[in-house]
C-alpha cells in the first residue's frame, strides 16, 4: 500500500519536475545570452550558429559603448535618480501611511479612497498631462521631474499604512505623548524604526522601479548626457547598424545590479510586490 502510494507520487512527480525545469530554463536562457553576446563582436553574434559560450570582446564592447554614449553620465544619473526617488518616497509615504493608520482627521476616508483609486488609473492617462506640467514648471530635461512626482506613490502609502496598522501600537504613541515627546520626535524616533521592515521592502521596490523606468525619461529628458541608462540604450538601438555587442554590454550593465539586489532580497521583494493580493 505504502509502496503503491510512493510510486504513484513518483509517477505524477517526474513530469512535473521536468516541466518546472524546462520553464526555468526558458526564463534564464535570455539572460545567459545577454551576457554571452556582451562578450562578442557584432560579426560574431551574427555568425551561424550564434555563439553559445563567452568570447573575448567584452573590453572592446565596453570601449565602443563609452564612445557612442556618455555611459558614465547615464549610469550616474540612473543611480542618482534611483537613490533620490527611493529616499523621498520612503520619507513621504511613511509620513502619509502613519497619518492614515493612526490619526483621525477630516476627509481621511475619502482621501484614502482617492489614493486607492489612483492605483487603478492607467499609466497612459498621465503621459500627456505630465509632459505639460513639466513644461510649465520648466522641469523638462531636469532629473527632479523623474523623482519628485512619484514620491508620494499610492502603492507606497498603502503599503506603509497596512504595515503601520499592526506594527505601531497606539498605546505606545499615547504614552510617548504623555511623557512630553513632540509629534516630530514620535515619528522620527518611534514610528520610523518600527516601520523598518516595510521601509526596506518599499525602498527595494522603488529603487528597482526607478532604475527600470523608461516612459518617464522618454517624455521629459532631452539631452543624451542627462539620459538614464534605459533611455540611453534605447537611443543607441535606433541608429542604423546597431552595435549589438556594445548594446548587449550596456543591457548587461543595466541588469547586473538588479540581479545582485534580487539575489540578496528576493523573498522580501516578492512578499512586498504581492502584498495587496495576500492581504
Amino acid at each position: 500500500m505504502k509502496g503503491d502510494l510512493r510510486s504513484a507520487v513518483f509517477v505524477t512527480s517526474w513530469p512535473a519536475y521536468l516541466i518546472v525545469a524546462a520553464g526555468a530554463l526558458i526564463m534564464l536562457t535570455p539572460f545567459y545570452f545577454m551576457f554571452v553576446f556582451a562578450t562578442h563582436s557584432r560579426t560574431e553574434i551574427f555568425n551561424l550558429p550564434p555563439p553559445l559560450w563567452f568570447g573575448d570582446h567584452l573590453i572592446d564592447n565596453l570601449t565602443n559603448l563609452t564612445e557612442r554614449l556618455p555611459l558614465w553620465h547615464n549610469l550616474g544619473w540612473s543611480i542618482y535618480v534611483a537613490l533620490a526617488s527611493t529616499l523621498l518616497t520612503l520619507l513621504f509615504c511613511s509620513m502619509a501611511g502613519y497619518a492614515f493608520a493612526l490619526f483621525e482627521f477630516r476627509f481621511k476616508r475619502s482621501l484614502f479612497a482617492l489614493v486607492m483609486a489612483t492605483m487603478l488609473l492607467p499609466s497612459f492617462m498621465n503621459m500627456i498631462p505630465t509632459f505639460m506640467i513639466m513644461d510649465v514648471l520648466g522641469w523638462i530635461d531636469q532629473h527632479r521631474a523623474l523623482y519628485i512626482p512619484g514620491a508620494a506613490s499610492a502603492f507606497g502609502i498603502f503599503l506603509m499604512r497596512q504595515f503601520a496598522l499592526t506594527a505601531v501600537p497606539r498605546e505606545l504613541i499615547e504614552a510617548a505623548r504623555m511623557d512630553g515627546c513632540g509629534e516630530f520626535a514620535i515619528y522620527w524616533l518611534i514610528v520610523l524604526p518600527l516601520l523598518r521592515p516595510a521601509l526596506g521592502t518599499l525602498g527595494l521596490i522603488t529603487f528597482i522601479a526607478s532604475w527600470n523606468n523608461f516612459i518617464g525619461p522618454l517624455i521629459v529628458m532631452r539631452s543624451v548626457e542627462n539620459y538614464t541608462l534605459p533611455l540611453a540604450l534605447r537611443s543607441m538601438q535606433s541608429t542604423t547598424n546597431t552595435e549589438w555587442g556594445a548594446l548587449m554590454a550596456g543591457a548587461a550593465i543595466a541588469t547586473i545590479p538588479l540581479m545582485i539586489l534580487f539575489a540578496v532580497s528576493s523573498r522580501q521583494l516578492i512578499a512586498g510586490l504581492t502584498t495587496g493580493a495576500v492581504k
Binding site: 527600470n212 540604450l233 543591457a251 541588469t255 538588479l258 540581479m259
Partner: peptide, 27 residues
C-alpha cells in the same frame, strides 16, 4: 519561484533589446 520572477524585475528595455537580437531574421 525566484527564477520565474527574475524577468519581472529586470529592465524591460534591456530585455526587449536582447529579444530583438534573438528574433533577428537571418542570424
Amino acid at each position: 519561484a525566484g527564477i520565474y520572477f527574475l524577468p519581472f524585475i529586470t529592465s524591460t528595455v534591456a530585455i526587449t533589446i536582447l529579444f530583438s537580437s534573438l528574433y533577428s531574421t537571418d542570424y
